[in-house]
Structure formats: C-alpha cells, structure tokens
Amino acid sequence: MDINKINTRILPVKFQYLAPKTLEEVISFLAEHGEETKVLAGGTDLLVKMKQRLIEPTYILNIKEIKELSFIKSNGNSLNIGATTKLNELENSRIIKEKFIALHEAVKAMGSVQIRNMGTVGGNLCNASPAADLAPPLLVLNSKVKAVSTEGEREIPLNKFFLGPGKTSLKPNELLTEIQIPYLPEDTGTSFLKVARTSMDLAKVNVATVLKLKNGKVENCRIALGSVAPTPLRVCEAEKVLLNSEFTAEKVEETAEKASQEIKPITDVRSTAEYRKEVSKILVRRALQKAYERIKVRECG
C-alpha cells in the first residue's frame, strides 16, 4: 500500500496491550496466545506496519521493561547481546567498535539518533526485512540467536533464521532473547558498506565481509548481502572463488562478479534489479578491499 495515501497520524487498529515485567510471564503468554500476538520492542517497524494495517494483532506484548533482555556481555568465546538492547547501545559499545567493526559500521548506518534510541537488535532481526542492516554483518560473523519458550530454549544459526520477507524460523510461542557472536581470530578483517537513497533510508544494497589470510592466501572469507533477495543471504559460491587463493585484484573482481550472479534482486521503489546487481558487484569488491586493508593496518601497526 502506498504510505502516502494512508493516515499515519493514528493507529487504526484496536488491540489489547500487555507489559509484563518478567520473561516467564512473556513466554507463558506466548505459549497461549503466540499466534495472535506481536511483540513490541522498539516499535519503529511494528507500529509503522500497524499504521499501514499490514498487521492487525489481537495482543501487543511490550517487552521493553524486561531488564534481563537488555545487555552486552562477553561470555568466553562469544559476545552475547540481549534482544532488547538498543541500537545506540551497540553504537556506544567499545567492545563492538573494537572487535566487530562491520557490526559497528552497520549500526551507525541505521536511521537517525531517534530511531537508534528506540530500535533494538532483536527487533531488527525479527522484523526480517530483506534490507535489515544488522543481518549481513551478523551473518558473516556466524552469529546464532537464542529462542526461548515454555518448552525450553534452542539456538538457531542466523543463516537458518530468515525464511522470507517478514518471516523467520521462530515459532509463535518462542521469543528471541539473545544474539551470540563468536569472537574472531586476531588478524581478521571485517567491513560493512551500504548504498541508500538518503542516509536515513533503508538499503538499496548492503554488504558485509569477513576476511582472514594465512601465508598470503585467503584462509577464510565470508560475504553476505541484504536487499538483494527475499532474505539477507551469504553468497557461498562467491566465497569459494576467493578461498585458498591469493588476494589479488583479479580474484577479487571474479568474486564480486560471482556474487552479483548469485543474488536475486527485484525492482521496487528503492531501486531496479539491474542497478542492484551492478552495485552489488562494486560493493562486494570495495568491502573485500576494506577488510583487507584493515588486516594490513593491523599487521603494520
């Protein structure tokens, strides 16, 4: 529906509002009413969709007040981030800035100060927009999410999480409670790049990479793109091109070319499919080079 043709001043839907104080209350409510409930974390995506009447839930379950869901904690091999941690808390986290540059760059590229004060990391993932800026960096970082329900908890690798636009592998009775990001080996480079109409807008294309070299050869290479398929995705065939070879301009070009063949963009209000294919190629090349330079700077420094 054309957003300009609807009244965005009001919420034209009626619903019941709940704001439980504990995680137990949340999951026992979801166990009973999961199908008819939408979880409210930041609201910057959910309320816009409700204004457009794209969704009309019976219940809104506000989880902002559940303190145990908001944290950034180091846990041995991984950094764990609570689902309702605000985007600006990620932006201000020293450990994310130092250890996960790609993720930090992605957060900084998201919306405005106000949006980052409201939006949460869990909300960005559960909204499952193909353009979600946190998805490509979290995909290349091999992140997992933790889903909790009355039946217990399970871990879902992020590459199994997104099923389609607005669709995730979370069951109606499950709540995403945390994101786990394994630490990278010291000499790894990461990067994130985004092209959008204006700096406030959703991505036409976004790209994240992780790169590690050993004895001059690419030992590890992960590339993910957003806004170019029904879900954010890893381009595994492109990664294979670069893996175990030297990091040369030709190889990088070949990798970028392969990535652009692997994606399945559509034409929409933000861009045409052709443009997205072309720009993806350039962004993949630049993102790989940026990750490479970061490794070099670290080696020299």
């Binding site: 965005t8 001043r9 919420l11 509002y17 704001a19 409210l40 609201g43 910057t44 309320l47 816009v48 809104i60 506000n62 902002k64 100060v113 106000q114 949006i115 004060n117 409201m118």
Partner: peptide
C-alpha cells in the same frame, strides 16, 4: 532524557 519519536510510541509505554 533520550530523544524518541512520539508518533511511534504508544502512550501506555510512558507510564
């Protein structure tokens, strides 16, 4: 103390 958008905030939420 933090700037937020009142058009995307439920009134109930400021309780």
């Amino acid at each position: 103390g933090n700037p937020v958008l009142s058009c995307l905030t439920l009134a109930m939420d400021v309780d």
